[in-house]
């Protein structure tokens, strides 16, 4: 092989390597989620409604569920669980809710992002209905009751006795409507 042919071949290989690594950078995004889920470290819960299959309710066991909420800095909402702590049996379908009040003077779209702690418990916390699956639009000075229906999987490891469900609420009005619209609405 002549020198230039050899050079060309090697350059091609190395360029391919660089392009592959660029792709790998983006592949890290889904990989991150998969790893977190497999290792149970990020506390992410199911993003779509789970289907409740009536199973045995483990009446011998009680699990404490705590609810907490955060509102993004500067967002004029009150957002709180109606019940902050409850005891449930694994397998039991439970209904509870969060209350939200928009104290602002404009229509605001919120988005609640859930997280369960300890992370290993997240996979066993199943929501069959949750306001977090959708956006939460609220007119100025109005309020809403946001429903949540869930059950704890029977297979929840023995050493986990408490699950804490936290919701962080973000203002996604701009992201959702585009900047131009919000500026119009503010006027």
């Amino acid at each position: 092989m002549s020198q230039t042919a050899a050079n060309k071949k090697l350059v091609k290989l190395l360029l391919l390597g660089a392009v592959a690594m660029f792709g790998f950078g983006f592949a890290l995004v889904p990989l991150y989620d998969v790893l977190c889920e497999q290792l149970g470290i990020n506390g992410k819960t199911n993003a779509n409604a789970a289907v409740y299959e009536p199973t045995v309710i483990d009446t011998d066991r009680l699990v404490t569920i705590e609810f907490i909420s955060h509102v993004q800095n500067g967002m004029p909402w009150e957002f709180e669980p109606t019940v902050t702590k409850m005891q449930v049996h694994p397998g039991e379908l439970i209904r509870t809710s969060f209350s939200a009040i928009n104290n602002g003077s404009t229509h605001i779209i919120g988005q609640a992002v859930p997280s369960v702690s300890p992370g290993q418990g997240a996979a066993y916390f199943n929501k069959t209905e949750c306001f977090c699956f959708n956006k939460q639009p609220l007119d100025a000075n109005s309020s809403a009751d946001l429903p949540l229906i869930f059950y704890v999987d029977n297979a929840l490891p023995e050493h986990i006795n408490t699950l804490t469900l936290s919701y962080s609420l973000y203002d996604i009005t701009e992201r959702h409507l585009g900047t131009a619209l919000t500026q119009g609405a503010a006027r």
Partner: peptide, 30 residues
């Protein structure tokens, strides 16, 4: 060759998060 493309990738994600509405790093968008 192994890591400069990853840097290029991560700045690109910052760019699209900031200007094109993606949410690689934005919790509100997942």
């Amino acid at each position: 060759i192994a890591v400069m493309p990853v840097l290029a990738g991560v700045v690109t994600m910052v760019l699209t998060d900031k200007f094109f509405g993606t949410s690689f790093f934005d919790a509100a968008g997942g």
